[in-house]
Computed example of a mutant assay.
Amino acid sequence: MTFHVPAAGAPLFQSALANFNPYGGETAVDSKNPERGPLLIIGGEQDHAVPPAITHASYRIQSKNPGTAEEITIPNRGHSLTIDSGWRAVADEALAFVQRFVE
């Protein structure tokens, strides 16, 4: 038996056309927002869905923000680095980053 849940298609179209919208729309990221909190970008060295070149490009954009931006590439890990075995090492990196900014 198959169930269909009716839903608005707008989010799907917004995502699909995000790269073609010169004004940003709902998917725009304000990388210059001075109120942005500390940002940690974590990527997997073997990630083929979001390769290291993409995470590094995101880091370069965000590093121009006055807020803290850091990048970590986890060796020998793919896209599911937070749910595969070894997830705890990734969580430890993220926790160490957060703890540096907790008052």
Rank of each mutant, 00 (worst) to 15 (best):
L95E: 12
T73P: 04
A8T: 13
V29P: 09
Q14E: 15
A96K: 14
G78W: 02
V90A: 07
G24D: 11
Q46L: 15
A28I: 10
A91C: 03
H56F: 07
A57L: 09
T27Y: 01
Y59S: 04
D84E: 14
E45P: 00
L95I: 10
A91L: 05
I42C: 05
A7Y: 01
V98P: 00
P75S: 08
A18W: 02
L81V: 00
A7F: 03
A8H: 07
I42S: 08
Y23C: 08
A57N: 06
F97G: 04
F97L: 04
H79I: 00
R77K: 14
V90G: 04
K32E: 15
K64M: 12
E45R: 07
T68M: 10
R77A: 12
R100L: 11
N33D: 14
N19V: 13
P51Q: 07
A94Y: 12
L17K: 08
A49R: 14
N76G: 05
R77F: 04
E103Q: 11
K32V: 15
Y59T: 12
E103W: 11
A91E: 10
N19Y: 14
Q46I: 12
K64I: 03
F97R: 05
T55G: 06
A69R: 02
D84K: 06
R88N: 09
A16Q: 12
Q14S: 14
H4K: 06
E103N: 12
N76Q: 10
G25S: 04
A10W: 10
R77Q: 12
I83R: 01
R60F: 00
N21Q: 10
F3V: 12
Y59P: 06
P52D: 08
I83W: 04
G67A: 15
A91F: 13
Q62N: 11
F101S: 14
H48N: 11
G24R: 02
F20G: 04
A57G: 03
A8Q: 09
T55F: 00
L12F: 15
N21D: 11
W87A: 14
I74P: 00
R60D: 02
Y59W: 05
H4R: 04
V90S: 06
F3R: 08
W87D: 06
R77G: 03
H4Q: 08
G25Q: 06
G86R: 02
D30Y: 08
